[in-house]
């Protein structure tokens, strides 16, 4: 005879598996909210979800990434209840072909995009013209030091906001293209890692994600701080949006109310975002 396993093994294993399965879905939530979209908004949405769970243990808030465009798409198709976007919506995303509004927009916070350099770099300030020329590839040195520029991939919300506030020369209507020789990374974190490891690198990331290994540069002598962002002196700022197909879902509405409440806003303000009601 071949190998004989104990008679009880199969039933015992199945019973264990069934118990595990049941216990994982048996928490008994009264409802769930799915948020999906921008990877820039994601860490802050997780903060909100965590705090919300303390007061509303009966609601299961699920946060998924995917990117701004995927977020908008998911809100539209109903695979998520709330889509997260770190860029403004295109007209064709907000309205259908007949001009009917198909998505509701709720701004939830302001985020500054910081231009960062390695903490050891002697750079502290950069002019907006230098910044534009560096990213357009017209120059590759600052004060005779070589500079490696790192950008986000095409389609990223952060890249779009950066292009709109930096790559347009004053008085000019056309936007300069970011150079083909710039390094490209597909997340804030990846850009931060490159800049943290390379003393010559310059990149841009969400201000809330700046850590000790990199430092934000002043642009035209203006550092991104709560003050300069609130009074509008620091220019590279974008809105974080929630987008919804309907405003009739009480669960989503209650969660949004929490995010916009003083408690919710303070929570993300501590991590570097600017409260939605406090700018200009």
């Amino acid at each position: 005879m071949g190998f004989r396993y104990p008679k009880l093994l199969v039933p015992a294993l199945s019973a264990t598996l069934i118990c595990l399965f049941l216990s994982s879905c048996g928490k008994g939530y009264a409802g769930k909210i799915i948020l999906a979209g921008s990877t820039s908004v994601e860490p802050f949405a997780e903060l909100w979800a965590e705090a919300y769970a303390v007061t509303h243990p009966e609601v299961n808030v699920i946060i998924q990434g995917g990117g701004s465009s995927a977020g908008v798409e998911s809100a539209l198709t109903g695979t998520s209840d709330i889509g997260m976007s770190s860029r403004e919506l295109k007209p064709e995303e907000e309205f259908d072909s007949g001009g009917q509004k198909i998505l509701h927009i709720v701004p939830v916070a302001f985020d500054a995009i910081a231009v960062i350099a390695n903490a050891k770099s002697p750079l502290t300030n950069i002019t907006s013209a230098q910044l534009r020329n560096l990213f357009a590839g017209h120059i590759d040195k600052l004060d005779a030091r070589p500079v490696t520029v790192v950008t986000r991939e095409e389609g990223s919300g952060t890249r779009k906001s950066f292009e709109e506030s930096v790559m347009k020369a004053p008085g000019s209507k056309t936007m300069e293209r970011i150079s083909n020789s710039a390094l490209v990374q597909d997340s804030n974190g990846a850009i931060r890692e490159i800049v943290a490891g390379d003393p010559n690198a310059i990149g841009y990331i969400s201000l809330g994600l700046v850590d000790k290994r990199v430092k934000p540069l002043a642009i035209d002598n203006i550092l991104p701080t709560v003050e300069t962002i609130k009074n509008g002196n620091y220019k590279i700022v974008r809105r974080f949006l929630f987008v919804l197909k309907t405003r009739n879902n009480p669960l989503s509405e209650d969660f949004i109310k929490f995010c916009l409440s003083p408690e919710g806003q303070n929570l993300v303000a501590k991590k570097g975002l600017i409260k939605i009601k406090e700018t200009k």
Partner: peptide, 12 residues
């Protein structure tokens, strides 16, 4: 493909 898929829509 992998870099840009997350944010791409339409023709992109």
């Amino acid at each position: 493909i992998a870099l840009e898929m997350g944010y791409a829509t339409g023709d992109h």
